[in-house]
Design a binder for these strands. Structure first.
Length: 999
RNA sequence: GGUCCCGUAGCUCAAUUGGCUAGAGCAAUCGCCUUACACGCGAUAGGUUAACGGUUCGAGCCCGUUCGGGACCACCA
């Protein structure tokens, strides 16, 4: 007898490293473009190097790994590109915090190079931790292709991308109001701003109207002065007011036309202008603005985006009263003579931060009796997604990508339907990715392959799953604004633009323009470099050029990810083979930040999609529906789960809960021993793995038995020698394969997990393994049964491997040892493989209708007997004596499977057939159209209760079905097979009711 | 303010285009250490599918209204 090789107890901490070692030693995650098979590729959403991975990452990567392993087993040339993201602002912020906490120093206490080195060290540490975590989770990434958004190849891609966009006129520099984060002192993109509800106030400030010729008067005179009252939530910005606006429809507008007001504190004389942006006051309005409004709007172009637009319409001066840290300052765009009018009251405000200044300004108005009132007001205010301080609209020079500008090098004309977005703009292309414009012929669908890439048939080929997120994607692009790509950080790709005072006359060769682009603005000359050349940069510095100090938005480099990971801008074989990638798995929060940018870039640079499918998975929440976060302390660390339950268990649980829902709640508990956060949800995965382990031990014991090893190979083919259970389990397996495949194709990970679980536990363990116990002990049948058992076990391992790779791989080796030759030709093909990871995924073989009809009836008989035993409180060890009245047709299978019924219901079958009469003193039940009699089982009360209950059920059903059939429109309109089905069921129910003697 | 989604057993989630008695897991109840597995086995109970109305032979699913929850976008008077 051969040993089973499997230890008695399942221990993931020995299984998982053993499997992992083989995969890595044998380089089984690696793929080359020239390998056989159709391409299948995934690029990892690069985790930020800010911190170790959390449970959301575990979910994200488990789902990707399932796809990668599945496709690898399908024989696709599968490559999963791993890497990490430098996450500019986020990483710089955590390092700044750490440096401050450890040494009390600030970023500005170091040189740029010194500080970047510190961030680099952080990145090295976390990149390693993240990679280790992914490996422990079993992620089959091609580690030779590990990338980082700021490493050399990626830097090259960024340079090239910037240059080409720049040269095409799609990158421009502009003075705009940006979302300024005064804490981190950088601009943020619109989608990096989070709105938060704030309990604020409306302040009503009175501005005196100055009469003609009275402008020189510095102080208001108390007598006869008229005022306009403005309402504002931000009184401190009044220092920068350059107008007061009124709606031209306002009845008061005519009388005030051409009038001016003196801005208190500052003494600036500013006009009253008319603009229909101003909301008319209406205390009864639904709109809170109209309720609170006075009809007069202070206009502060430098500190409010809407005011900025009003300012542009009316040519108003823009006066910036804040420093970059949002303290009152006269040095950032405030003319000295204007400031000087203010006097001491104004000077006193200098240096105050915006909140102190707010109090001071309000206090001033109060003391001057110019404060009319203060009303509480709840409104939402933009906050930095990083530092969480309120965003300051701030006027500054930034770099932008034009998203709706026509791209001249692209021939398409027209606009995307329902919008005015040009087809040949970045946003236009992104929109065309999910819906065809019809302006180009869309050729036949090619899921992957060269043809799809060579032609322009990507329109409408970007599929977002679940589909509802397509609307989010499209709505975003329909309302897109230009993308601010510069960030005032040190950690990131430096903007490859140099500038110098004055206008330069270029004396260069023609090919110089291949790698250089220039423009002039504001008396400066700007030069964009395509390639990184230290020599050239050195000489530029010597000539007095300065490089732009800013870095690019993180999403600029992650937007290039599907290109840059494959070696773009070189036309590499990787790129030809694997771009477009097949699937992108990500969270809904970055559909706009990331997915959109990848689509725009890939289409712009390569004229093809970055990926065909985007799967948006659920967000994991804690038991109370809150996001998991460090500050709440409700996060679950994947490594803790791997240690307590195993990586397979974690992956199974994550897959099983991956429905197409928006969120998934996962109750969080403290582990009693380790005091670490965990969730009982993972027990299910662990239990399942344990089940697989033990079922395999049982199988291996039997496969290694003497009887089983004396099998004959032809029995594998000769189905006539199979038992009903054999035919049934093979059929069930093939059905499970079909279901699982369909589930995976639709990204229904929950359905895939459930299919595996139900088949393995429900069909295989609960029924088949129990049913074959006698056969495995019978030398005549052991060989044949072993063949089916080995094949179904192998097939199950293949089926489940993508989800629970470690345990299946490990067990597979033992199976290879104990029974090297497996498979049931024509029924369950299992091409041999040394390792499971690259064994063939099972193809769905034929199902057996007859077996799947008869076997469940036997199950029903057994279940009924078990139920009777329980109800009549029969001792578990007592064997009951049973007779069954069944039609000739079903008596055969019952007799043939007598052994199984007796074993599973712990009974002896006495008589079976159509003429069987109920023995005296017997309990009686009806199931599967047979009558079952259990001898010497008398409990009148129990039987009475049982019958009454059943009769009630039946009479309800019968009434419902009769009613349905009596309804003519049902029998006429409903599909015939459903009507027939109802008739059959009714007949059956009536028969059973009659037998039970229901009244 | 605009858009999208959700409300199903005590909890977490299912239910292919409307069609068998609305299903699982966990928790609960009863009985079992049966020789692979107590991380297990067998059995049981638990639902007016948020509410109301409509369409339909038939509604958890489609339509409308209301209530409750979430997400995305826009919005600092």
């Amino acid at each position: 007898m051969m040993s089973t090789d499997l230890p008695k107890a399942y221990d993931p901490s020995t299984v998982e490293p053993a499997a992992d070692k083989v995969w890595l030693d044998e380089n089984l995650f690696h793929a080359e473009p020239g390998d056989p098979g159709p391409p299948y590729s995934i690029v990892i959403p690069p985790p930020n190097v800010t911190a170790a991975l959390h449970l959301g990452h575990a979910l994200n990567n488990a789902l990707q790994d399932i796809l990668a392993r599945w496709h690898r087993m399908l024989g696709d040339n599968t490559c999963w590109f791993p890497g990490t993201d430098h996450a500019g602002i986020a990483t710089q912020t955590v390092v700044e915090k750490r440096v401050l906490a450890e040494g009390g120093k600030r970023r500005t206490d170091f040189s740029r190079d010194e500080f970047v080195k510190k961030i680099q060290a952080w990145k090295d540490e976390y990149e390693k931790r993240i990679t280790d975590q992914l490996k422990r989770m079993g992620c089959s990434c091609d580690w030779e292709r590990q990338a980082f958004t700021m490493d050399e190849p990626r830097a090259k891609a960024v340079r090239e991308a910037f240059f080409r966009l720049f040269n095409d006129g799609l990158i421009y520099r502009g003075k705009r109001l940006v979302n300024w984060d005064p804490a981190t002192q950088t601009a943020l993109a619109d989608d990096e701003v989070e709105m938060e509800e704030i309990d604020g106030h409306f302040y009503y400030l009175k501005y005196p109207i100055v009469e003609e010729g009275d402008e020189a008067t510095k102080r208001r005179s108390d007598e006869g002065v008229k005022y306009v009252t403005v309402a504002t939530t931000r009184p401190e910005t009044m220092l920068g007011d350059t107008a007061v606006a009124i709606n031209p429809k306002d009845p008061r507008a005519g009388a005030l036309r051409g009038k001016k007001v003196r801005l208190p504190i500052v003494n600036r004389i500013i006009p009253i202008i008319e603009d229909d942006y101003v909301v008319l006051p209406d205390p009864n309005s639904q709109d809170p603005k109209a309720q609170f409004a006075t009809g007069f709007l202070k206009v502060t172009p430098a500190h409010d985006p809407n005011d900025y637009e009003i300012g542009r319409r009316h040519n108003l001066p823009v006066i910036n009263v804040f420093s970059p840290t949002a303290t009152i300052s006269k040095d950032h765009g405030w003319a000295a003579e204007d400031f000087a009018q203010g006097g001491d009251d104004l000077r006193n405000l200098l240096g105050m931060d915006r909140f102190e200044a707010r109090r001071a300004v309000v206090e001033w108005f109060r003391s001057e009796k110019l404060l009319e009132e203060i009303k509480p007001y709840k409104h939402s205010v933009g906050h930095s997604y990083r530092s969480h301080v309120p965003i300051e609209p701030y006027l500054s020079d930034q770099w932008y990508v034009a998203t709706t500008k026509q791209i001249e090098s692209m021939p398409e004309t027209g606009t995307v339907s329902v919008t005015n977005i040009p087809n040949n703009s970045l946003a236009g292309m992104a929109l065309r990715a999910t819906r065809s414009t019809g302006i180009l012929p869309v050729s036949s669908t090619k899921e992957h392959g060269q043809d799809a890439r060579a032609t322009k048939d990507w329109e409408g080929k970007l599929k977002i799953v679940p589909e509802r997120y397509t609307k989010t994607y499209e709505a975003w692009h329909e309302n897109i604004r230009d993308w601010c790509i510069s960030r005032q950080l040190w950690w990131g790709h430096r903007i490859p633009v140099w500038s110098i005072e004055g206008l330069i006359v270029w004396d260069v060769t023609a090919d110089w323009h291949e790698n250089h682009a220039t423009f002039e603005a504001g008396g400066r000359t700007y030069l964009c470099l395509r390639q990184f050349d230290p020599e050239e940069e050195k000489s530029l510095i010597e000539e007095g050029w300065e490089q732009d100090p800013d870095v690019l938005d993180t999403w600029f480099s992650s937007g290039l990810w599907p290109l840059s990971t494959m070696g773009w801008p070189e036309e590499t074989r990787n790129l030809q083979k694997w771009n477009p990638t097949n699937a992108l798995c990500t969270d809904r929060s970055i559909i706009t930040l990331w997915v959109s940018r990848m689509v725009m870039f890939n289409l712009y640079f390569k004229n093809r999609l970055p990926f065909y499918d985007t799967f948006i998975h659920a967000t994991i929440l804690d038991g109370e529906g809150r996001k998991m976060s460090k500050s709440l302390g409700n996060g679950v660390d994947p490594i803790d789960i791997i240690e307590s339950h195993g990586a397979d268990a974690m992956r199974f649980t994550l897959a099983a809960m991956s429905t197409h829902t928006q969120d998934f709640r996962m109750p969080v508990e403290k582990d009693a021993k380790t005091r670490k956060n965990t969730s009982p949800k993972f027990d299910n995965g662990r239990n399942f793995c344990n089940k697989i382990w033990n079922a395999t031990r049982f199988a291996l014991m039997n496969l290694g038995s003497d009887g089983a090893t004396e099998r004959r190979s032809d029995e594998r083919v000769d189905e006539s020698k199979w038992s009903l259970a054999d035919r049934w389990i093979v059929s069930r397996f093939n059905r499970a394969v079909a279901d699982a495949t369909q589930a995976l194709q639709g990204y229904r990970y929950d359905a895939y997990a459930k299919t595996c679980y139900d088949f393995f536990w429900g069909d295989l363990c609960d029924w088949y393994l129990e049913a074959i116990k006698p056969a495995m002990k019978d030398p005549k049948r052991a060989g044949q049964t072993a063949n089916v058992l080995a094949a179904v076990l192998d097939g199950s391992l293949r089926l489940m491997h993508p989800m629970i790779p470690f345990i299946t791989e490990y067990i597979y080796w033992s199976l290879n040892e104990v029974q090297p030759q497996r498979g049931l030709p024509g029924k369950l093909e299992l091409p041999a493989s040394k390792r499971l990871i690259n064994a063939r995924f099972p193809a769905a073989g034929p199902v057996s209708d007859s077996a799947e009809q008869i076997f469940p009836r036997l199950q029903e008989v057994i279940n009924t007997l078990r139920n009777l035993r329980n109800q009549y409180k029969v001792e578990p060890k007592k064997t009951i004596s049973v007779s069954i009245m069944a039609s000739d047709e079903f008596a055969g299978p019952l007799v043939e499977n007598k052994e199984m019924i007796e074993l599973l219901a712990n009974c002896t079958l006495q008589r079976i057939g159509p003429g069987v009469q109920p023995p005296a003193d017997s309990a009686r039940a009806i199931a599967a159209s047979v009558e079952i009699y259990v001898e010497d089982l008398v409990d009148k009360a129990a039987e009475e209760q049982r019958n009454t209950k059943r009769c009630e059920e039946l009479s309800k059903q019968i009434a419902a079905m009769r009613g349905r059939l009596a309804n003519e429109s049902y029998s006429k309109k409903a599909p015939p097979h459903l009507v027939q089905q109802t008739r059959d069921q009714l007949a059956e129910a009536e028969a059973e009711a009659a037998k039970l003697g229901c009244s």
